[in-house]
Each structure stands twice: as C-alpha cells, then as structure tokens.
Design a protein around this nucleic acid. Structure first.
Lengths: 151, 151
DNA sequence: TCAATAGATTAGAATTATTCTAACTAAAGA
DNA sequence: TCTTTAGTTAGAATAATTCTAATCTATTGA
C-alpha cells in the first residue's frame, strides 16, 4: 500500500464532504453523524426539484454507495428529518410511507401502476367550496392527490 | 334443552337475517357466508351516512357482537368488498388503511389528533388549475384530504 | 337423493413495514 | 483528563397485512 502524505496537524478533521448536507443538519439542530451525513447527501445533493423516497429505497441506495447504515436507522433518520422540517411525509399507498424533499406548497400526481409520484405546484391551483374549518381546529395542510392509471 | 317446533319442510333454509346485507353480497357476486353476512351487516346496516373503519376496528366490533371471524378474514373481506365496489380504500394515516362505505364522489376532513374522518361531498367543490392528464393515463380519482389539528 | 368434483373461502402461519430500547458514542462540564 | 449526560444506532420486538394449505360449499352427474 502506498504511503500517504505526511500529516501537517495532529488533530483529526472531518473531511469537508457534502457541505450542503452538513449545513442542513447543523441548522436543524441534528448531530452530523456519519449515517446522517450520508443520508442527507443522498436526499438533498443534486436533486433541485425534489425526491420521493421510501425507507427501503433510501436504504438500498445507501448500501449501493457503500454507506454502513441499518434500515432501522434509515427509518429513525427519515422521521427525525420530518420532525425537523427537512422532509414531508406522504401517504399515498397502503403499506408504505413516502418522504418528499420538496417542502414548498404543492400537491401530487400518483401513477398507480408504476408507483411514480410527481409534484404539482400549489401556486396555480384553487380549491373552491371547502367547508368552513370546524371550531377549535386549524388546517394543518390540504393534500390533493390525483390518482392516475394506464389507459 | 327444549324441543323446537316441528319442521314443516325437510329442506334447511338460511334464516332471513339482515336481508339488506345479503342482497348486497348477492349483487356483488360474493357467496353469502356466515362471516361475510356478519361483516356486511356491521358495515352497512343502519349507517345511512357511511362509516370509516380499519380492519382492527371492524374485527373488535365483530368480536363484541359474538361473531366468530379471524382478523385475516376481516382483511380478506374488506379487500374483496373493495374489489367488488362495495367499499373504497382510504389512505390518510401511515400504518393503517381505512375503508369507507360511502361510494359517492366525496373528499375528507381528517382530524389528526383523534383520527376522526368526516366526509365532504364533492358536489360543492371545484378544483381549478390541475395540470392536464398525462398522455396514456386517465384519472382514476382525485383525493382531497384536509388535515386538521387542534388549535 | 347422494357422492364426487371443482372452486371459493377461511384462518393460522409467514411476511413486510415500522418502532422500541439497550448498548454505544459523542459532547459538555469539572 | 475523567465523569456525566444526552443523543444516536441497530438488533430485537411489534404491528399491519398477505399468503396458502385445509376446509367448506355449490354444482353436476349418476
């Protein structure tokens, strides 16, 4: 094995990988651990228009990239990210939760055959005739899901 | 044990219980078994404005009424009823499916704190600005879920 | 009427999705 | 540096749902 270049410092530094992901974790008050950095990088880096993943999907992806993470940690992390406002949980499919990195106000097209999810910006959409919000309650969010099937 | 009244016929007849439930099963082409009759009666009889149940809820209810049904059968039956167009599956909550006896065109209010679901007739609702249906696809259904929380 | 057959139905067992918690790790204070 | 505390991880446990072998029911033919 080739010898590495001599160290100029004794203190070990975390290598400056995926700065964006790191900053996100810091801002959310989550400790930037190896596992979280890897998952945040997969979720957010290089995906300007958002992603939709299940825990299983993200786990497989992490494994392929050689990250050592358990499926339980992927679940825990997705839930923490959701709690911290980095992700949004989406329930379209009985049996699995999807997580959406797009935190803007939007709705979804759901292709039932393939399972694909596509965002629809809420900007151009108007919903008329919804009943008044019941006393003592407030609207947390309105979800519109257009379910599509192959014709 | 007291002797029962003498039979006037040799042929054994299914007693004329829950005629409405029975008719529904017949129309849907499902064999009216003891389990299905019991579950259909619970779901449809005396609930003119529709019900929202999970498998677990219906199972508990059936047990309380003394019906001998397994939880697996409740799942199977709910799925068969859905397939047959007697029910509609509703996914609002990660982790559980709800089944809705209201087959009319409608949307939902979902109280996140209590888990309560309330129907909103689609008649008075208009959604403007949805994108064009993609090529090769057709709209199976549009779900609007207003998620409410305690204020 | 009765037995044989085919197909539908049931429910215990298996699987899949998710959460829980004990062990581990990192950060903060002395 | 050592100790304490709180956060984090992942194996084990749980919850939700499906699968399939055994059972039951309806039908057909004798």
């Amino acid at each position: 094995m080739a010898k590495t270049a001599p160290k100029t410092r004794k203190t070990v530094r975390t290598p400056p990988v995926t700065t964006a992901a790191l900053a996100r974790l810091r801002d959310a008050g989550l400790r930037p651990t190896r596992q979280r950095i890897a998952l945040a990088a997969l979720l957010f880096d290089g995906h300007p228009y958002g992603r939709h993943v299940t825990a299983e999907m993200l786990f497989d992806e992490a494994r392929k990239r050689g990250a050592r993470v358990s499926l339980a940690t992927v679940y825990n992390t997705l839930n923490q990210f959701t709690e911290a406002g980095l992700l949004r949980e989406l329930v379209v499919d009985p049996g699995t939760s999807h997580f959406d990195t797009n935190m803007g106000d939007h709705h979804h097209l759901y292709f039932e055959d393939s399972g694909e999810l596509r965002d629809v910006d809420a900007g151009g959409i108007e919903i008329k005739g919804l009943p008044a919000t019941p006393r003592g309650a407030e609207v947390a969010r309105v979800d519109v899901i257009v379910r599509l099937r192959r014709r």
